[in-house]
Every structure is written in C-alpha cells, then in structure tokens.
Design a protein around this nucleic acid. Structure first.
Lengths: 152, 152
DNA sequence: ATTTCATGCTGAAAAATTTTCTATTTCCGT
DNA sequence: ACGGAAATAGAAAATTTTTCAGCATGAAAT
C-alpha cells in the first residue's frame, strides 16, 4: 500500500476533478489508459479512495449561513458521549463534528439558511439533546477556503 | 433555478455517490436515462453542482492528525486581511479557512501527520506569516462526522 | 375553446468511455 | 544474470454517455 509519485499525482487529479476520463488522465500522467485504470482500481480497493461525490453550491440550496458551534457536555460518562454522538449524526444540518481537546468537547460545523433558521435549529434540535452542558456559536463572515482535497 | 423533489433526490444521490450511472439513477428516480442526463446537465450548468471529486482516506495518506486552529490578526486593516487570506490559500495543510465573528478572526482546519508535523507547520508556515496576532490550537480526539453533503 | 410555445419526457442510435483480455516490458530480490 | 511478480500497452468487448427526433403536458395568448 505504498504510493509512488504517479499515484500521488493521480490522487491529486482525482481530488480536484473526478470526472476526468482515463484517457485524459493517461495523457496527463504519460501512461496508457489501462495503466491508469488499474491504478485507480487498486486505490479504490485498498481504501485510499473512499468515495466519489458531487459538491453542491451552498447558495443554490439555500444553506448560505455557516456556523461553528462548540459544545460541552454536562458530564463525560461513556453513556452521555455515546448518546450525543449517535444523535448528532442524525442532524443533517451538522456537516462535521469532531471530538476535541480543550474547553469544549465537540466542534460542529453547521449549515443553515439564515440566523433565524439557526435559532430554530438550536432550540428544537441541538440543545434539545440530553446532556448538553453549554454551547458557544461562532458565525462565519466569509469563506476563505473550503476544500476537500488532502495534501498528498 | 428552482429545484423540484426529483432534483433534490438526484442531488442527494450524487452527493453520496457520484459514480452511479444514469441508468441506476433513472431506476431509482423512476425516470428515463435521458431525463436524468438532462437534469444533471442543467444542475451543472446553473452551478448547483460545483464539482465532482474523489475523497481520500486521511490515514492512507498519513494525514491522521486534525487540528482546529483559531487565528487572530494583529490588526484588521484591509491590507493585513488580504495578505493573510492570500497566503493561507497557499498552505496545503489548511483544508478550510473561515473568517468568523468573535474573539478570533479566522478558524482553520488543518491536516498533518502528527503533533511533530504540526509543530513544524506552526513554526515555519503559519506563524511565519506577517501580522499574525495570536493563535489557539484545538486538537481533535475523534471524528464523529465529516460529511461533504449539504442538506437539500 | 383553440393555438402556440416552451419544457420535460421517452426510446433508439451514435459516440465515447470503461472494462476485459492477452501479450509484453519492467523491476526487484536472489 | 536470472526468475518471477507487478506494471504496462494495445485491441476487443461491454457499458455508458450523449445526441437526436418525436411525443406529451401545461401555461399564456388569442
């Protein structure tokens, strides 16, 4: 499961545009179509490539308002942690959720339409969860960078 | 540019797996292949679908360590802001960067190999930028959710 | 009520791509 | 230098994407 320079170039190409044909990739990598095909299959099989997805413009689907929310649980028992993590997975507005070190336990990235929707989300969904100790919301003024590609 | 129920289903399908064939999509949506094709082309043309990408497993590319870093600039002049935003775009470890309200000016999501790499990144790249006032790093203990799909 | 126009759909044909197959080349360890 | 596994190339087969012509639906105009 070692990545050579060609694999890395290939991953970068696919991370930036997965719709390129094997022919295009072959010409960019100075390889044959089959060689590209085999390399991609291998990367898919060994799990290096997890998934192919379409990225949607948040403005076009009325989800322009991005909030980073820090959450602290009231206790840190296994039961509370498990419950929170299970429930947060179900909240479609929460696109990311990380368990973190520091003052707060979790950091959430939340997409909603506007401040009013966020208020509604907080009241009826997030703080409705059991064992939420406290939350701290940070509102985004601007998106400088929002990539999905990891450095390879 | 209005999305009907079929468009929304289609977007959800493509957000979860963009490699499905039009035939598969057609059968899931009870449409003909051409109807699916035309709808996708329209969504691409009007920008609702921004991009198609491959998602890579962070562990397989040795980027298992995720840090959320809060950054404050020393001043908020247009010049400083512009400079910072331009430079941060160039840092491949920084996958996301948002300009935010509150105590800090920016929140960064940073993928590196380990703590040592992070130290190196901080010293020689991030805090090497001009006009950085202060930073506060939060380390992630666990990834509960890390999606790319917006609620549609 | 009828016409007209635009929009979206279907099914089939054409074009392009993916996938398979066979053979050859390259590379690494012995 | 040699043997064997892995990677590559090119062509054929299978599948998919894309184009095309025609049909239905619905809204706006007469």
């Amino acid at each position: 499961m070692k990545l050579d320079a060609t694999d890395k170039k290939l991953l970068n190409l696919l991370q930036s545009d997965s719709k390129r044909t094997n022919k295009q990739l072959a010409s960019l990598l100075n390889l044959s179509v089959t060689a590209v095909y085999e390399r991609i299959k291998k990367l898919e099989k060994d799990g290096t490539i997890k998934q192919y997805v379409a990225l949607v413009d948040k403005n076009k689907v009325d989800k322009s308002f991005l909030v980073i929310c820090h959450v602290r649980l009231s206790q840190h028992s296994k039961e509370y942690v498990t419950y929170f993590e299970k429930e947060v997975l179900k909240l479609e507005e929460v696109v990311e959720c990380f368990h973190v070190s520091g003052d707060y336990d979790y950091i959430l990235k939340i997409y909603v339409k506007d401040m009013e929707s966020y208020r509604e989300f907080m009241i009826s969904k997030l703080t409705a969860l059991k064992h939420i100790g406290s939350t701290h919301s940070i509102f985004t003024i601007g998106e400088v960078k929002n990539a999905t590609a990891l450095p390879v």
